[in-house]
Design a protein around this nucleic acid. Sequence first.
DNA 1: TCACTTATTGCAACAATGTTGCGTTAAAGT
DNA 2: ACTTTAACGCAACATTGTTGCAATAAGTGA
Lengths: 127, 127
Amino acid sequence: MSRRQTKSQTAILQLLKKEQVALSHDGITAKLEQEIDRVTIYRILNRFVEDGLAHRIVADDGRQYFAICPEECSHDHKAHDHLHFRCVSCDRVECVPGEVEYSLPAGYKVDNHNIILSGNCNDCSGK
Amino acid sequence: MSRRQTKSQTAILQLLKKEQVALSHDGITAKLEQEIDRVTIYRILNRFVEDGLAHRIVADDGRQYFAICPEECSHDHKAHDHLHFRCVSCDRVECVPGEVEYSLPAGYKVDNHNIILSGNCNDCSGK
DNA sequence: TCACTTATTGCAACAATGTTGCGTTAAAGT
DNA sequence: ACTTTAACGCAACATTGTTGCAATAAGTGA
Ligand SMILES: [Zn+2]
Ligand SMILES: [Zn+2]
Ligand SMILES: [Zn+2]
Ligand SMILES: [Zn+2]
């Protein structure tokens, strides 16, 4: 059950670490030099999430994006409660560090946060 | 270009108004008495969103849910910034009224809020 | 270094969700 | 009742992600 290190895996991990933004399967495929099978990419990403290396965001475009857990998350894998911004112009999804405050009725137990704001990022809002 | 009132349309609108929760295409199909074509349902829902009657939430299960705009939204169709809670046990998505506070870097223009917390609702967390 | 175990891969097939095209139906206006 | 065309139903398609299974290769130990 222990993980094995493979080229595909390290390539994707390096890519995610290098990128500042969250990447979709599509974006990963585009940025990889080597060819990796669709299914393999999905399986690697799911493994990363399972292992707490990355977190998954389901954006309002209906797609999954993956990002390396930022510093603030490192100590606590459940700390994925930061928000995410998807720019509809440049199609990038980025993690936005910082607290999100809200109130919830009593008795509700939150397991996962999936906060997506979409619009135009700083680069694109200037047109 | 003006809207026409049809049975399918009013049935779905009544259903959404009656329900307290946000409904997916699937949930709507299940709760409707009459048979309405899959595509028609999707088109009706998209029309509702377009017309500002309802708002669309893309949940972290990757599906679209639709809810009638609550009172707080009525005066301003852009006020869909309330959060949503999806219970992974009973598979319901509900609007949670109230403010969500966050901060965003300068220059970012938000068009749409898609805030989903998932976990167990009050009914289900007591097991 | 070589053999062994099994995690990982690649391919095909499938599943789920949502959209588009198009001919038909029926709501609204005259 | 007639006309216009929004809305519908059906089929086909598109996209995104998962599952099954045989082949490959990473880790382990002799
Ligand atoms: Zn942008
Ligand atoms: Zn993030
Ligand atoms: Zn519940
Ligand atoms: Zn809502």
